[in-house]
């Protein structure tokens, strides 16, 4: 145990060179609806993103920290949310015989995970664990741009690169990713009639995942503007009082 720990620490302290050399490419910039101090989540895009997530991503990835009820934030009403939730089965509390039966998820439940546990997820995915996506945008540097670049960045491996059981993606740190390309365009048929190009699907799902990571984003930015304006005025008055009170000090 001791030796293992020391090796790990030694590695990270002195041989970080190896890791940093294999960092992924800097993500491409894109002007998302939620960028900037006045940016907000494009609700239509987020709803389409939910559709992409449910029909494609959710086969392997979970949204552990998100409750169905939160979908109200991106413009669904309670009835619609119950319809979304009831497609998924969840363990009920033990009944009078002590048996745990499955029931349909409802409004107040959290998003149902595709796998019952991490081991089950690994065994179905070549030993790689599909990470939870709730916080993915915050868990990567420049997360929204990174996700968009990654989802658009699948290529054939260049000559001489052995990807093993993985796939080549220059935006992934190490350039090899365990996940096969998930989106190609026309993977879903959008309910609102938008043409489901690859680029469109990616932007929609990134918008949705930005909202799952930062559900407070819109409220934060709009209250931020008010708070800053208030503080600027208050500070200005403090400054005037300061000048007035100090006028005679020489």
């Amino acid at each position: 145990m001791k030796i293992i720990l020391f090796t790990i620490i030694f590695t990270t302290f002195f041989i970080q060179a190896l890791f940093s050399a294999s960092e992924g490419l800097k993500p491409m910039k894109y002007n998302f609806s939620f960028d900037g101090i006045l940016g907000s989540i494009d609700k239509n895009s987020a709803q389409r993103g939910l559709q992409v997530f449910t029909e494609v991503c959710a086969a392997c990835h979970g949204l552990n920290h998100l409750a169905y009820r939160s979908l109200e934030d991106i413009g669904y009403n309670k009835g619609e949310i119950n319809n979304i939730a009831k497609q998924f089965l969840i363990d009920d509390i033990p009944d009078e015989n002590g048996e745990i039966k499955k029931r349909n998820a409802i409004y107040s439940d959290k998003f149902v995970n595709p796998y019952p546990n991490e081991e089950a997820a690994k065994v179905s995915n070549n030993g790689a664990y599909p990470p939870d996506l709730t916080l993915m945008v915050k868990a990567r540097k420049d997360g929204a741009n990174y996700l968009r670049s990654l989802l658009l960045g699948y290529e054939d491996a260049p000559e001489g690169v052995d990807v093993g059981e993985g796939y080549y993606n220059k935006y992934m740190p190490g350039k090899i990713i365990a996940m096969p390309q998930p989106l190609y365009g026309d993977d879903v048929e959008y309910q609102d009639g938008t043409v489901a190009t690859l680029e469109q699907e990616v932007i929609d799902v990134v918008t949705f995942l930005t909202w799952t990571a930062m559900p407070e984003l819109e409220k934060r930015k709009s209250s931020g503007i008010k708070v800053i304006i208030f503080l600027l005025i208050m500070t200005f008055f403090f400054f005037l009082s300061y000048k007035k009170i100090w006028k005679d000090v020489k």
Partner: peptide
Amino acid sequence: VKDFFGLGVALTIFFSVVFF
């Protein structure tokens, strides 16, 4: 009063980070 003025400036910077 001088400390309050300084606090106002500091809070403005602080909350710019907190909110944005």
